[in-house]
């Protein structure tokens, strides 16, 4: 597997990286963990002329919470950092559930959350998680910084909202207002497999009532699907078997799966429904065994 010829730059500052991108035009690509980009280049599905490797740019490998609880994940924070993070375990149940399900340990040592969002693979797990949490991506370009809501950041399969000379510098998960709960379930054929079906659920509750709900789906459409109707079905009251059932149905309806060698469309839809029920039932103390 031999990629096409490319130029390689490893700048030491964001400014320089942005300048290289700006000069490189459409043929320049950022490389973070390289776990999606390098395989594509080896298969010659991607043949960028310029690789801007940002691994030498200092200060991007963080993930930290602001005093108010807003979580910031830097562009070089690896999946493995998040998998091992106590911060996530304490405050981010959906993310903590997803991190160990991404790829395999080797890939997790290199790949990044921000890179995964930028890559916008419909089977990428992080996009669903961040969309369910109502997160956003902070981009920097020659014109300065801007924040893009995650739900708008992914614009299609393998397409994102960045201009060619913008770098995604961090992902931001807003602080919760109520008590945060949620999870991520993924059907994979073996460790390291992309999701046949993945479901992210993120809830906030106050006084037993759902005050914020996010549900997003992996692998069952042309890109990450925000199941907004499903989330809406949970709002404003406690979780009940009925509201869970309504949410599960709405999520299954929002899915647009295709039949392929991983399973029939019907099965994938069924799995979305099953996962939503399982995630919510496990979650809501008020709910009996609905799964």
């Amino acid at each position: 597997m031999y990629p096409s010829r490319f130029r390689y730059e490893a700048p030491r500052s964001l400014e320089e990286a942005i300048r290289l991108l700006h000069e490189g035009g459409d043929e320049a690509k950022i490389m973070a963990g390289g776990q999606s980009l390098v395989p594509l280049m080896k298969l010659r599905f991607a043949s960028p002329e310029l690789i801007v490797d940002i691994n030498n740019v200092p200060g991007l490998d963080y993930h930290r919470a602001d005093p108010d609880g807003t979580l910031r994940v830097g562009a070089l924070c690896r999946h493995a950092d998040l998998e091992r993070s106590d911060l996530l375990k304490q405050a981010q149940p959906t993310m903590a559930a997803a991190a160990p399900l991404i790829a395999d340990p080797l890939v997790r040592n290199r790949g990044t959350l921000v890179g995964s969002l930028c890559h916008a693979d419909p089977q990428g797990d992080w996009a669903s998680v961040v969309v369910a949490l109502g997160g956003s991506v902070v981009a920097r370009g020659p014109g300065g910084r801007r924040a893009i809501p995650a739900a708008e950041f992914v614009t299609g399969p393998f397409e994102n909202a960045l201009a060619h000379d913008e770098i995604a510098v961090e992902a931001v998960i807003p602080a919760p207002v109520g008590t945060r709960s949620g999870g991520y379930l993924k059907l994979e054929r073996r460790v390291g497999d992309f999701a046949t079906v993945g479901v992210a659920v993120a809830l906030e509750t106050s006084d037993g009532s759902v005050t914020r709900a996010g549900i997003a789906l992996t692998g069952v459409g042309g890109s990450t699907i925000a199941a907004t109707q499903a989330a809406a079905a949970l709002m404003g009251g406690p979780l009940t078997p009925e509201s869970i059932e309504r949410a599960a149905e709405a999520a299954a309806e929002a899915a647009q799966p295709r039949s392929d060698h991983r399973g029939s469309a019907e099965y994938k839809r069924h799995m979305v429904r099953t996962f939503v029920v399982r995630l919510l039932s496990r979650d809501g103390a008020s709910v009996g065994k609905a799964a």
Binding site: T196, G263, Y267, K268
Partner: peptide
Amino acid sequence: LLPDRVWE
């Protein structure tokens, strides 16, 4: 025996 086949 992929899960979808068993489920079916």
